Simulated assay, not measured.
Amino acid sequence: MSPTDASTDAGTEPVTAGATDFEETLDPRQPDELGPPPPPSDGRPARAAADLRGDAHPTAGGAATPTPEDLLDHIAAWGPAATDVGAFHLVPVRPEHDLTLISRWMNDPAVAAFWELAGPPSVTDAHLRAQCDGDGRSVPCLGVLAGTPMSYWEIYRADLDPLARHYPARPHDTGIHLLIGGAADRGRGLGSTLLRAVADLVLDHRPSCARVVAEPDLRNTPSVSAFLGAGFRFADEVDLPDKRAALMIRDRALRDLL
C-alpha cells in the first residue's frame, strides 16, 4: 500500500536500495490465497468512469444505475474528493481500456517488488478480471488526480476477505491497496494525501463502515508512515501467509482528530 516521505524519520530501520521508489508505490498485493476476492460485475462505472476519460456513452436515462446488491456502495458514483493537489476521483477499472497503463505500472521494478504482477499484460489482465467478474467484494480503480490517471487502488470488503481470519474484523470493514504509478509522482508526499482522501471517501459514502483498514508489510516503513500521516493508527502486527504486516486502521470516530 502506499506511503509518504517517511524515509527520513529518525530511528526507522534502514530501507533497502530503491526504497524511495517503494515509498509511494504501494504495498504488496495479497497473494491469491489472501488477496481481496473477486470484485464487482455490477455497479461498475458505466458513465462515471467514461465521463472522466472523455469517452462516455450515456444510456437512454443519461446515467448508469448501480445494482442494489453492490457490496461497496457504488464506488462509481462517489464523485471527487478535494485535496490540496487537485480533485481526486476513484474510477473503477475497465480492463479493455486500462490494461496497458496498469500493466506498465506493474512492470516497474519498484512496484513489482511488492505486487508481483510483472510480466506480459495477460498477468495483470487476469488479476483485474478476477475482481471485475467477481461478486463485488473488491473493486479495482484508477486514481485520477486533476484529470490524470496516476495510481491504482483496490477497495475491498476486508470483513469478507480471507484477511478477516487474521485480525478481529468487524462488519463492513473496508480495506485499501494502493500503488502510485509514475516515478515522478513518488517522493512528493502524495501517499498520505491520497490515502486520507480515499479513506474519507469510504467513510462518507459507506455509512455502515466504521473502519478503513490496511496491512502494509511491517518492513515497509515509508508505507506505514504514510498511513500514520493519513490519520490511520497502528493497531497491531499480524502474521499473514506472505508477510508480517502492520495492521493500520482509520476509525470513523477519530477521523476529525487524526
Results as ranks from 00 to 15, higher is better:
Leu117Lys: 03
Gly61Tyr: 13
Trp115Asp: 00
Val139Arg: 00
Phe114Ser: 11
Trp78Asn: 04
His74Met: 06
Arg44Asp: 07
Ser7Ile: 11
Arg206Gln: 13
Trp105Ser: 00
Gly136Lys: 04
Trp78Ser: 03
Asp27Val: 10
Arg255Ser: 05
Pro140Asp: 09
His205Asn: 15
Pro121Gly: 05
Asp21Lys: 08
Arg47Asp: 15
Thr174His: 05
Ser7Met: 11
Pro222Asn: 09
Thr148Cys: 08
Ala63Gly: 08
Val213Gly: 01
Ala118Phe: 03
Asn107Gly: 01
Cys141Ile: 03
Asn220Val: 07
Thr65Ile: 15
Val213Leu: 11
Ser41Tyr: 10
Lys243Gln: 10
Leu179Gln: 01
Leu34Asn: 08
Thr65Leu: 15
Gln131Cys: 06
Val139Trp: 03
Leu257Phe: 10
Pro14Thr: 12
His166Arg: 09
Cys141Trp: 01
Gly11Trp: 12
Gln30Cys: 10
His89Leu: 08
Arg206Lys: 14
Val15Tyr: 11
Val212Glu: 00
Arg157Asn: 04
Leu190His: 05
Gly119Asp: 08
Met150Tyr: 08
Trp115Val: 00
Thr20Lys: 11
Gly134Arg: 03
Leu203Tyr: 04
Leu228Glu: 07
Leu163Asn: 04
Ser225Cys: 05
Tyr156Leu: 04
Phe227Thr: 01
Pro14Gln: 12
Ala76Asn: 03
Phe227Met: 07
Pro207Cys: 03
Thr174Pro: 01
Val202His: 00
Thr65Ala: 15
Pro14Asp: 15
Arg219Trp: 06
Ala245Tyr: 02
Ala87Glu: 15
Ser2Phe: 12
Trp115Pro: 00
Leu203Ser: 03
Ala184Tyr: 07
Ala17Phe: 13
Gly136Gln: 06
Asp84Gln: 12
Ala210Phe: 03
Arg211Trp: 02
Leu160Ser: 02
Val85Ser: 07
Ala113Ser: 12
Thr25Pro: 00
Ile102Trp: 00
Thr59Ser: 14
Leu257Tyr: 10
His172Thr: 05
Ala158Glu: 04
Ala158Val: 07
Phe232Cys: 06
Asp9Trp: 12
Leu228Tyr: 00
Ser208Arg: 13
Arg44Met: 11
Gly61Val: 14
Gly86Gln: 11
Met248Asp: 06
Pro120Gly: 13
Arg188Leu: 13
Arg250Met: 04
Leu178Val: 12
Cys209Ser: 09
Ser225Leu: 05
Met1Ser: 14
Leu145Phe: 08
Glu23Pro: 00
Leu128Ala: 01
Ala214Trp: 01
His205Val: 02
Trp78Gly: 01
Asp133Phe: 06
Ala10Met: 13
Asp242Gln: 12
Ala82Asp: 15
Arg157Glu: 05
Glu154Lys: 06
Ser103Cys: 01
Thr83Met: 07
Thr20Cys: 05
Asp9Glu: 15
Ala110Leu: 05
Glu24Trp: 03
Ala77Thr: 13
Ile102His: 00
Glu13Cys: 11
Ile249Arg: 02
Gly187His: 03
Asp32Cys: 07
Ser138Cys: 14
Ala46Gln: 14
Ala126Asn: 08
Leu201Asp: 02
Asp217His: 13
Ser138Glu: 08
Gly182Ile: 00
Ala110Cys: 07
Ala56Gln: 11
Pro31Asp: 14
Leu26Cys: 10
Met1Gln: 09
